[in-house]
Design a protein around this nucleic acid. Structure first.
Lengths: 229, 229
DNA sequence: AATTTTATTTGTATTTTTTATGTAATTAGG
DNA sequence: CCTAATTACATAAAAAATACAAATAAAATT
């Protein structure tokens, strides 16, 4: 492959903006770096792509190493390639965002050697980030803001069974605006992709709400018909 | 940068889906390759990213080498990184799409050594393409189909001065569906981003239509307010 | 047991946007 | 002057988005 080799050292990496929804707040998973450059800084989880890995596989691996989870919803987001974005050479980074259900058993288990620890941090309260990770985060947040209006990604952030109020909270936090309960409910139900589980919320100290789940089959039947939230 | 170097040969390239609108048809710019692999095949124009080039700069350079044009509307589209997408090694390709005004002076001048010639080819009549370029093209087409509904990109495909009918043609071809003239006109004008030039089309053998131009300043004032076509 | 607290649940009128359709006006060419 | 082709304008009907208030259920408190 002589003719396709560049004349300079270069490589490519994956960085992940991992969103979780917890306690009514939108959070992302950050690691504290254990290596230079940016040792002791907070950064997005990321790594070099392996020789026999596709980009998607690499992103899934990185997330698995960090959380122990697999089959997480991930999408490629944008590729960052400024000449000097990495102080030690030319590194092009393909950013992914991931959405996952928090709470309960889904604990974070930091495994990688390059990370001291990993924390969920509220997106409204982020520390300074290493490299151009601030920009990557912002791009990821913009993407999900757009996508939540047309695609059923909100459900990825909620437990399997959820109430309409919980669902509304996800929309409100991501879109940063209050929504009307009655109109939200009406519209959401009108899409016909929510299954009424005929089951009530447990352990709340007030009237329990009905639980719903997202019905993937019914959604698939809409066949790309635009949902416009 | 020892620790960030991968243990295997790899590089990254840019591939461009260059859209043009001509004679009522949507076309893309293809080159006929002059080198192995895929010698004599049609392919998207692309190249290796230079050491001191950002990705955006590289995309602009490639398009300039091919057309002689600069200041062309380009956007990053998606990054393709399957392990075996390039027969000679690991090459990750960052795809861009470009939109440009055809007709008149904007002739294509093939310069690169790796291309025998370059042609504008109707997207409805594409030949077999080298590498995974078919997939890249389809991704680019999907992107502009989505984007044209919310962003003023149609104007990039038209001359500075255009009629509402020409504009409607762009929408019809990209969205692959007929639109109602009266409703199209009403809606398009309602956005308030078209400037009536108080000037008529020339050299037509029927009633001449009014010429308009896209008013970037007025559009900027909308400040991200969603246009929904 | 009655009362208070908290959150769920439901309906309707109004406005805005989208869709559908009719018809007159303008221009070139025969 | 008449025809053909296209632009240009108006309005009604349907659908979707928005604004807005009161009753109900369950648990906690007194």
């Amino acid at each position: 492959m002589s003719e396709i080799l560049p004349k300079f050292n270069s490589t490519f990496s994956i960085d992940c903006v991992v969103f979780g929804f917890d306690g009514g707040e939108l959070k992302i998973l950050l690691i504290e770096r254990n290596e230079e450059p940016f040792k002791d800084w907070w950064a997005l989880p990321g790594n070099i792509v392996g020789e026999q890995e596709s980009l998607d596989q690499s992103a899934a691996r990185i997330l698995n190493e960090l959380t122990g989870l697999s089959n997480i919803y991930m999408e490629q987001c944008y590729t960052f390639g400024d000449v000097s974005r990495h102080p030690q050479g030319r590194v092009v980074s393909i950013a992914y965002y991931a959405l996952l259900r928090l709470g309960g058993d889904k604990a974070v288990k930091p495994i990688s050697t390059y990370a001291k620890k990993a924390n969920w941090i509220d997106v409204k309260d982020l520390p300074k980030l290493a490299f151009d990770h601030k920009e990557i985060f912002e791009t990821g947040l913009e993407k999900i803001k757009r996508r939540i209006k047309h695609q059923p990604i909100a459900f990825e952030l909620l437990p399997e069974k959820f109430t309409l109020t919980q669902l509304q909270n996800v929309y409100e936090v991501i879109l940063s605006k209050k929504l009307d309960k009655r109109n939200f409910r009406k519209k959401m139900l009108s899409f016909g992709v929510l299954k009424d589980l005929e089951e009530k919320q447990q352990g709340v100290s007030f009237r329990a709400a009905t639980l719903y789940k997202f019905d993937k089959k019914k959604y698939a039947k809409l066949f790309g018909k635009e949902i416009s939230f």
